[in-house]
Structures are given as structure tokens and as C-alpha cells.
Design a protein around this nucleic acid. Sequence first.
DNA 1: TCTGGGGTCCTAGGACCC
DNA 2: TCTGGGGTCCTAGGACCC
Length: 417
Amino acid sequence: MAASHIPALARTIFHVDMDAFFVSVEELYDPALKGKAVVVGGQRDERGVVSAASYEARKFGVHSAMPLRTAAKLCPHAIFVNGHPERYRESSEKVYAVLTSFSPQVEMASIDEAYLDMTGTTRLHGPPLKAAHLLHDRMKAQTQLNCSVGIGTSRLIAKVSSAQAKPNGVLWIAPGEEAKFLAPLDVREIPGVGKVMESHLHALGIKKVGDLARLEESELEDRFGKWGLALAGKSRGEDAGGWFDAEVGADTDAKSISHEHTYNEDTADANQLEATLMRLSEMVGRRLREANFHARTIQLKLRYKDFTTITRAHSLVDPTQLDTEIFEQARTLFRKNWKKGMQVRLLGVHTASFTECAGQMDLLEGGRQQRWKDALAAADRLRDKFGESSVKLAAGMRGSFRERTHENPTGLPGKKK
DNA sequence: TCTGGGGTCCTAGGACCC
DNA sequence: TCTGGGGTCCTAGGACCC
């Protein structure tokens, strides 16, 4: 092909996506699962959705985000497995180690996928396709896991091509071939186009990316605003706007930390609901302390039986990382907004607007907070040693913490991180 | 079919300030 | 009198991703 088609500054981006990651990791622990219809995410009669399905289960129409009970109906012979986040984190770290041996610019986009900037690595690893096959084989050798690799001049092209390469494949889109590659694909294949956007586009008669590319930019902008403009660029394979434009591997601090819980059965029991808020506040507080963040905004999430969901937030003058302060705010928001007697399906505690250090406080307040911090640090250490359920901080306690061991009667250490 | 849990980003209105 | 304009912060909700 003519060299003039190749932009002088074209980047070479890899998108590496692990195949059926959670299922594959579970197979490492239980080889009997191999080749079977497997659903990870919970048991067949539980409230919840599919986190991952094996290719065998997918043949029956099972896919991630589908309710477990639906999956059980579509594929009655499937084996249902609870998720093991520690296992996935551990495998993810091995994946990361393999990737960093190929490029210093690696960015994990989630637990099972990553972008690599491979621009200028030809001398070291050979041309893109050769490097990708090398990576693919080393991944299998060192993690026993299959992955797919997409290669392109943008994150977008790399991401879309890795999806086309699945399972267990490698796909390279040569510079200049982007639009041709995208044109026949459904608009839904473009990252950021979900159910809602898809139906808006379908209503305009736009089904394929090629249809999108033929539209005037100005028309897309008029209809969909800023996002429409980005969409026009994407239809040509450009990393148009936002995070996609960022350098690969630029580190990004967390913007929010949250935990939520859906009850197996809806409840209107105020004591149970507030106990859940306490537990969620503890989990959030702990993660704030681990990250050394102080949160200014505390948000409550409340979902009723009929699935109507509200969020209510409050911003503090002094940012906090203390369980009790988080809980106090969450509980206040809850008492103000929960319609007494209404059955609750889900509660969540969300924190955001982080600062590195705490706001100002007077000396007296400082002393009291310090004692709390000491107590919490001790509780965190105890949890590390004996597991999540061994320590609970009771609401309203001052300057001390109580140890509860009835949930761990053997005295043996629980799961260690 | 009866809908998890952890995130990110965007929009839009109102308050408040200059 | 019949009504500025821009900037920022806060809150609520929603689309989307894995």
C-alpha cells in the first residue's frame, strides 16, 4: 500500500482482553469445569446477575448482566459458581506483569483488559503482529489464560478489533484501514454506544458505523450535542474526546468510593436497614483510609421494592475518612428520606470529592479525631489478621472498639488478602 | 427474565458571587 | 424597571462500562 496513506505520527495501540476471564480463572481452581456450561456470579435461585458465562453457556443465550434466574431457565444444566474477587485480582496482577514486559506504557482499563502503547517498540519486539503473537503466547505460558489482542492506531480501533478477534485471537487493523474496518459493524460495537443511544440511532435509520460516518458532523452535534460530535470522530476510528484521548498509562486517582447491598429479601425493618448502613460505612471508611483520602461528599442510595431509586447527598465542611462520621451522615440522609414502612431492596453509601488531607479542625476536635483514628487503625489491623467479620464498630461508641468473635468461633484466621 | 456491584462521565437546574 | 452574564459549587439523575 502507498506510504502516503500512513500518518507520520501514527501510534500503535494494543488492547489486550482476557477471554471469559472469571470463568477461566475458576477453571484453574477446578479443572472439572473445563468445557462445561459455567455461570459465575451466584447461585441459580439468587437475586443477582451473571458476571461471566463460559462459551458453552453462551450458546444457550446466557450472557453477562443477565439475571441469574433467567440464565438458569435458558441453560438448566449450567454449573453456577460464586465469584471470588481475590482470585481475579491475583490473576490480574499476573496479567499485568506479563504486559509490562512488553511496554512501559500499560494501562489496566479494568480487571481483565488493558491498553498498551507499543509505538516505537519494533526494534525490541518486531512489527505489531509479531509482537502481538509473542504477547499472546507468553500470556498463556505465564498465566494459563487465553486473551485476545486488537491492534490499531487508536484506543478505539484497538478495543473494537480485540472484540472481533475473540476468542483467543489477534487482529491488526493497518493504518489507513480504520474506516473500512468499522463501516460494516453495528453501531453498538462502538464503546459508549449502549441500548439507549443505539435505539436513538436506529430511529434515524442508522444501523451500521458506515451509516454514521456518512452523516454530517453538524447534524450529529445538533441532535446529540458534545457526545454527537465525539461519535462522528469515533465512526472514523478516532479517539475523539475525553478519556480516549489521554496518554496510555497516565495514572488517574479514584474519584469515588462506594459500597452497596441488595437484600435477598426486601425489608422495612429500620434496625436492619441502619445496621446495613453501618456496615457499608465501615467498608467505605476502611477503603478511604487505605487510600489516604478524605471525602467531602457523602451520598445515600435507596432503592425500593418497585425499583424506584433515589440518591441524596450532603457535603461536609471538613472532609472525613471516619466510619462514624460517614455513618452519621448516611443515617441522617436515610431518616430524612426513607418513607417509613416502605420495603427497601437496596442501600448504598457513596463518597466523593476527595482531598489529600483533612480540612481544618480545632485542637479539641483534633484530639478526639486522633483517638478515633488510632482505634480504627487497630481495627483495620485486626481485620487483616482475622478476616472481615471479626471486628465491628458499634454506632455511638467513643474512643474504643469492641471485638466480636462469635462469627469466627474457631479462632482461626479468616481469608487473608 | 425481574433486574449486582463497582466505577466514570455528562447534563441540568438552582444557589451564590462578582 | 421587566430583568446581564459568566463562573463555580452543589445536588439528582441517567447512560454506560466491566
